[in-house]
Design a binder for these strands. Structure first.
Lengths: 143, 143
DNA sequence: CTGTGTGCAAACCGTTTGCACTGAT
DNA sequence: ATCAGTGCAAACGGTTTGCACACAG
């Protein structure tokens, strides 16, 4: 019933390639990230990590996130008025719809919007380096 | 040479209507906001305020921003990795293109993108409460 | 054995808040 | 005269960093 089609990234290989050491805390954190179907923040990752290995510190979580972000293995999202939340950098580019009641994050993708953004930036004399499109919404009540 | 077509909001009237007192610090801050053609952050507003009246505190700037935001007179933007920046809530809704080299903010508007956002949210079963579209770019080099 | 990575505590930065005072109404 | 608003300093929450130790290579 849980048919994950999305490829799980091989973080360990990515790290090895980056020439850094594979330590116990890192392995634990990587495992959590591979399993995460959601967009957890650092504290949430820390809690899940401590449940596996009590010795892990929050600093290490932050340091590992920064490391993974640096090598492009994860994306950091600063949704409004909250801590950064992370997600594996796998699959196609997408944007986010955030449920303002639950904090749930739904991913979506629109080629048309991407094109329009390019056109707009172009017409203003800019090249887009990256962008951020977040919809904050509430589940429509059934009637 | 300074032909401002954009209407300047009458903050003082808005505040009076909100039933709050018009104090000296508030008057100074409101003046700064009316004159600001940019999107200053709290510290920047504070500096401009101190240049006019040395007695003003940063707390008051923050409190006044919160107050103005509450009555809908200004908008707060949390552009990436920086402090909140503010702008008068006048004119049509628009989104922002941020120059990643200078921090300059260019406003733009796209009905088409707004429509597409609505469609997307709708198809996911959500009503949009608000959204955030920010393009981070670099000026195209002339060739 | 070397030096990268770690845990811990302290520092950081933007922002908020408790307090006693000041000043708009 | 009242009490909303203020300046100040301390607290806050998320994140980063300096340090001495630990352990992957």
């Amino acid at each position: 019933m849980n048919e994950t089609v999305i490829p799980k990234p091989d973080y360990e290989a990515a790290l090895r390639e980056a020439g850094v050491r594979i330590t116990r805390p890192r392995r634990v954190i990587l495992g959590i990230l591979s399993d995460a179907g959601d967009h957890p923040d650092a504290m949430e990752i820390f809690k899940r990590a401590v449940a596996i290995d009590t010795g892990i510190s929050l600093s290490t979580v932050y340091r590992t996130m920064k490391l993974l972000e640096g090598i492009g293995a994860i994306h950091r999202h600063a949704f409004e008025g909250g801590p950064s939340r992370f997600e594996p950098a796998v699959g196609e580019h997408h944007d986010h719809l955030i449920d303002i009641d639950t904090g749930d994050v739904i991913e979506f993708q629109s080629d048309r919007i991407e094109e329009l953004q390019q056109e707009i930036a172009r017409s203003l004399g800019y090249d887009i380096v990256h962008h951020r499109l977040e919809l904050y919404g509430r589940k429509r009540r059934k009637r």
